[in-house]
């Protein structure tokens, strides 16, 4: 059973339906006590970082997520749900994140190294450069296109957490992870077959049902 963490900030409908298409049992919960008995968790998210941290806190999910991760339960963060796993974000001032991964969330500079402006948000289908193909999450996921839409990007000095990146004027961390905690900047449920493959790998390989 996958627990989808519902703190009021995600497109839960689409991700729920994607799990149904994969025949994966799931439940939604907006309080930790509703999700105690799950085998793995999905942390979705759309919106602004500070609002999301506040909403997670209001719903009592911050200690819950940390505890479940410590106990070894698999977790998949999607989009803003990935960004929340880092130490902090500069969105709306400096806001503290869950701190499960080293690094911070910064706004795309919008100007490349040569001083040439480029568009923000990073919106559309971009190709994955898979750096750690041997990992269970990356099974059968190659140099495929997935759908990005974000204005803020993760910045980390720890290259070992980068499972895949995408090139948008800088190396965008696209899929990240360490052991049982993984995340993607893009929405797998909106990224065609490769996205569905990632979700399937998480739900059926990483999570012990």
């Amino acid at each position: 059973m996958i627990g989808i963490i519902d703190y009021g900030m995600g497109n839960l409908f689409s991700v729920s339906k994607a799990l149904e298409r994969l025949d994966v049992p799931y439940k939604l919960g907006d309080r930790p006590e509703e999700l105690q008995d799950c085998d793995g968790y999905i942390l979705p998210g759309v919106g602004a970082f500070p609002d999301a941290m506040k909403a997670l806190d209001d719903h009592g999910f911050i200690p819950f997520i940390k505890q479940k991760v410590e106990e070894g339960y698999p977790l998949y963060g999607i989009c803003l749900g990935m960004q929340l796993l880092f130490e902090s974000s500069e969105e709306g001032g400096d806001t503290k994140g869950l701190g499960l991964f080293p690094g911070k969330i910064v706004k795309f500079p919008g100007v490349d190294d040569g001083g040439k402006p480029y568009k923000v948000p990073h919106m559309g289908w971009n190709q994955l450069d898979v750096r750690q193909p041997e990992l269970p999450l990356m099974t059968d996921v190659g140099k495929e296109y997935v759908y990005f839409v974000h204005s803020y990007v993760a910045q980390t000095s720890d290259e070992s957490i980068l499972y895949a990146t995408a090139d948008y004027h800088l190396d965008v961390p696209a899929v990240i992870g360490r052991d049982h905690v993984v995340a993607s900047q893009f929405h797998p449920e909106k990224s065609g077959n490769p996205g569905m493959q990632l979700l399937e790998n998480f739900c059926k390989v990483m999570v012990k049902q």
């Binding site: 689409s14 339906k17 149904e20 929405h187 909106k190 077959n193």
Partner: peptide, 11 residues
């Protein structure tokens, strides 16, 4: 909208 989101994995 609900049906499209239920059955398709593109934005």
């Amino acid at each position: 909208v609900r049906k499209v989101a239920s059955e398709l994995a593109i934005p």
